[in-house]
């Protein structure tokens, strides 16, 4: 009898969860971001549906997560600040943009924040920072990493930026940073009520080089000798061209 009751409860919980989860939707516009010659980032509209009364958190991270190798500075001979070695950062995304309808620590309970990597404190719990060679240098390297990424505009938390309406529909206008490199990004919408996650949905953003930018990038990688020679010839031609202009303009003594 006990096991039957447990089964009924589990099914009911699953049904409720599925119902909440099904309510969450995510639409991204534009979902394809072309990097053209005059690209300087774009506004991205993220909207969808949650159940009425739910809070919404939207997290953007790259689809693939790689480890980072960054040089660190320390004091050499007690006087000079020098690059002393390399630190390896694991379990951290290269881009992390989080927006929520309210303060993240109120929207989701601590355990849920840690499970879903919501907020910088939750990211720190999962981060693994090691020295590439030798002993790990002393210091708060996660704080340094966070500062480094924030300055690059690739890490940001915007609390209260997601607008949720009475019917549960929500929207966010995200200033997509031009610093975000080409690739595919995962947009996760996580809904929560009373501090507990109730549902989720996902969409994707693809950032791609196009036109002249793509052609030059391809040439620099596929035909390096030609790219090098072209760069030199254009520079010489420009130098001579301007020299001729100044000559005609009466620059001689």
């Amino acid at each position: 009898m006990k096991s039957m009751n447990a089964f009924i409860l589990a099914v009911a919980a699953l049904a409720l969860s599925a119902q909440s989860g099904a309510a969450a939707t995510t639409q991204v516009s534009p979902s394809d971001i072309p990097i053209t010659l005059f690209y300087h980032g774009v506004p991205v509209e993220i909207k969808g549906q949650a159940a009425p009364g739910e809070d919404v958190m939207i997290k953007v991270t790259p689809s693939e997560q790689k480890e980072f190798h960054l040089k660190y500075k320390g004091k050499a001979a007690g006087i000079f600040w020098m690059k002393l070695g390399t630190l390896v950062f694991k379990n951290l995304p290269s881009t992390y943009l989080l927006a929520s309808s309210g303060p993240v620590d109120k929207v989701a309970a601590q355990a849920e924040r840690e499970a879903e990597s919501l907020g910088f404190t939750a990211l720190q719990k999962k981060a693994e920072i090691t020295a590439e060679k030798g002993a790990m240098p002393a210091g708060d390297w996660f704080a340094q990493f966070l500062d480094f990424k924030k300055k690059e505009k690739l890490y940001a938390v915007q609390e209260g930026a997601v607008k949720v309406n009475a019917d549960g529909s929500y929207q966010l206008t995200l200033a997509w940073p031009f610093q975000a490199p080409p690739g595919t990004y995962k947009v996760e919408t996580i809904t929560a009520k009373d501090g507990h996650v109730t549902g989720r949905s996902e969409a994707a953003i693809t950032v791609e080089l196009t036109g002249v930018v793509a052609q030059l990038s391809k040439m620099s990688s596929d035909n390096r000798a030609m790219y090098g020679i072209l760069s030199i010839l254009v520079a010489i031609a420009a130098g001579f061209g301007v020299g001729m202009i100044f000559k005609k303009g009466g620059g001689s003594h």
């Binding site: 010659l37 930018v213 030059l216 620099s220 990688s221 390096r224 000798a225 790219y227 090098g228 020679i229 072209l230 760069s231 030199i232 254009v234 520079a235 420009a238 130098g239 061209g241 301007v242 020299g243 100044f246 620059g251």
Partner: peptide, 28 residues
């Protein structure tokens, strides 16, 4: 320039173009 482009892929042609627009006039 050639060695950097060939071995390291560290020459940005467009950046160089923007810089040289200023620098060739500056040099004159």
């Amino acid at each position: 320039t050639f060695l950097q482009a060939y071995y390291n892929r560290t020459v940005d042609f467009l950046l160089a173009l923007l810089l040289l627009i200023g620098s060739v006039f500056g040099a004159q």
